[in-house]
């Protein structure tokens, strides 16, 4: 039977290195995906992955279990990625004007919006569409991108994402909403075209 995260943490604190390897095996894929989406570069993502788990090992004695292990891990991983991004200094600093990605509401008229193709996700996800999606995600400022990845890709709750990022739940919800609307807006031209 698989041990819980907390049980593995206790074993690691008692110097059981195999328990640490089990915990790494459990979460390495999630941390790597987070880093790939935050950093868009395999080499940087691998660096971030290694650095995160080294910080886990070194910091585990200070982990008191006030949050779950996974939330704590995501906090470390997100901070490692954000630090790397800050060092790069080439990130978009502000969210692109949301208004550009919203339907135009003329007085008393409904906006013109086209449907996207009515096909399942696995059919819509071609190499080209995946590339468009990654490019769109990359154009979000890092703080918005992190919220979207944690909430909508990794499935954390508002409270967990807030804890991982050190921001309030209200800030999580606001950033998530803007990130979603902006991504939809950036992708709509592409998906409308392949649907027409």
């Amino acid at each position: 039977m698989d041990l819980s995260d907390q049980a593995l943490v206790e074993k690691i604190k008692a110097a059981d290195y195999q328990a640490f390897e089990a915990l790494v095996n459990r979460y390495e894929g999630k941390v790597y995906r987070l880093a790939m989406r935050m950093l868009r570069n395999q080499e940087d993502a691998e660096d971030a992955l290694q650095e995160t788990f080294l910080q886990v090992y070194r910091g585990l004695n200070g982990f008191e279990g006030r949050s779950t292990f996974s939330t704590w891990l995501f906090r470390l991983a997100t901070n490692v990625c954000l630090m790397k991004i800050r060092h790069r200094g080439t990130e978009p600093a502000h969210l692109l004007p949301l208004e550009e990605y919203l339907p135009r509401h003329e007085e008393g008229e409904h906006p013109q919006i086209q449907e996207w193709p009515d096909k399942p996700e696995e059919v819509l996800l071609s190499k080209e569409s995946r590339q468009k999606m990654l490019e769109a995600l990359d154009r979000l400022p890092a703080e918005y991108r992190a919220v979207f990845i944690l909430r909508d890709i990794e499935g954390l709750s508002n409270a967990e994402a807030g804890e991982a990022l050190g921001i309030s739940m209200a800030a999580v919800k606001s950033r998530l909403h803007r990130a979603r609307l902006t991504l939809r807006g950036m992708l709509s031209g592409y998906f409308e075209r392949i649907g027409s």
Binding site: Y32, R33, R130, M133, R180
Partner: peptide, 28 residues
């Protein structure tokens, strides 16, 4: 239009969720 907007917003989220499940490369 609002119905289409909400459907395409949901689709945006589900596409990212679906695309986010690739495995970790063995060498990594």
């Amino acid at each position: 239009p609002c119905l289409v907007f909400v459907n395409t917003l949901k689709k945006t989220i589900s596409l990212y969720k679906y695309a986010g499940s690739e495995p970790l490369p063995k060498e990594v």
